[in-house]
Amino acid sequence: MLDTVSTDRVSTLSALANAGILAAPLFTVAAVVQAATRDGYDITRHPVSMLALGDLGWVQTTSFVVVGLLSVAAAAGTGAAKATRALHAAIGVGLLIAAVFRMDASDGFPLGTPEGRLTTMSGHMIVHNAGASVSFFSMIALCFVLAAGFRRTGQVGWAVSGRFAGVLFALGLAWAMTGGTGGALTLFLGVAIAWNWIAAATLRRRRQA
């Protein structure tokens, strides 16, 4: 009986961890498809979060909710160190906050919105940015935490690529936060590179375990 319970628990945790690995590619595909099809949206000017605005905004909101829950599932299912679990959970919680509190319309999106960047932010946009920041900084930190684990086991390629992904995301985020040209694009690329590397690294660790 105990063996059965133990086996069932391992299977459940494994399923949760595997679900978490899907978060990054699902988010990336959903964002790219919407960026290519939403009228008036320009990924070099508009952050992905702005896709949650307008008549089809529910698509991006659903994406935030799904990938947020998948990231929390990864935290619950992984048998990794406490810091790794905490960072997975923080990524998920930040995304769920971003799903509930939306950005303000600006810079011509959705269609009909006046051109130009915002000069003030609403309360819900401030909370959105706070949630997104939690996710962003957690992703950057997780890249370095996982890279350190690979370095300890002599997997140099994975260690170097993890640090590279973290640095790229940090640079892309800094460029976007300072209002650099094309900052929305550098932010998205940073998220896509770092988060999909985390997914690949997590899958590798699971296969080795």
Rank of each mutant, 00 (worst) to 15 (best):
S161Q: 09
S135I: 02
A132C: 06
V59E: 08
V145L: 11
C143H: 08
A73E: 04
I21C: 11
I43L: 12
L203D: 06
Q208P: 00
W197C: 06
T202L: 14
S49M: 05
V29E: 14
F101E: 06
A184Y: 00
R85I: 03
S138H: 08
T178M: 12
G166W: 06
T61G: 13
V66C: 07
T202Q: 15
F64P: 01
I140D: 03
F64H: 09
A80C: 03
R9M: 11
P110H: 02
I198V: 15
R117S: 07
V145D: 06
V160W: 12
A170W: 05
N18F: 11
A80Y: 08
F169D: 00
G180E: 01
A76R: 11
V29N: 13
I198A: 07
A176Y: 08
V93W: 10
A76H: 04
I126C: 05
A89V: 09
L142E: 04
P114D: 01
L96K: 06
V33Y: 12
V67M: 09
V10N: 11
V67T: 14
A73H: 04
T119H: 06
T119C: 00
N129T: 06
A201W: 05
A159D: 07
L171T: 07
S138G: 10
V93E: 08
V167K: 06
N129D: 10
W58K: 01
A36C: 15
V167C: 02
I126R: 14
Q208V: 13
I97T: 11
L189P: 02
A24Y: 08
I198G: 04
L96E: 09
A201I: 04
S135E: 05
W175R: 02
G149V: 01
T186N: 05
L2S: 15
F136P: 00
Q34P: 07
R152C: 02
N18H: 13
G108A: 02
H124D: 12
A31E: 14
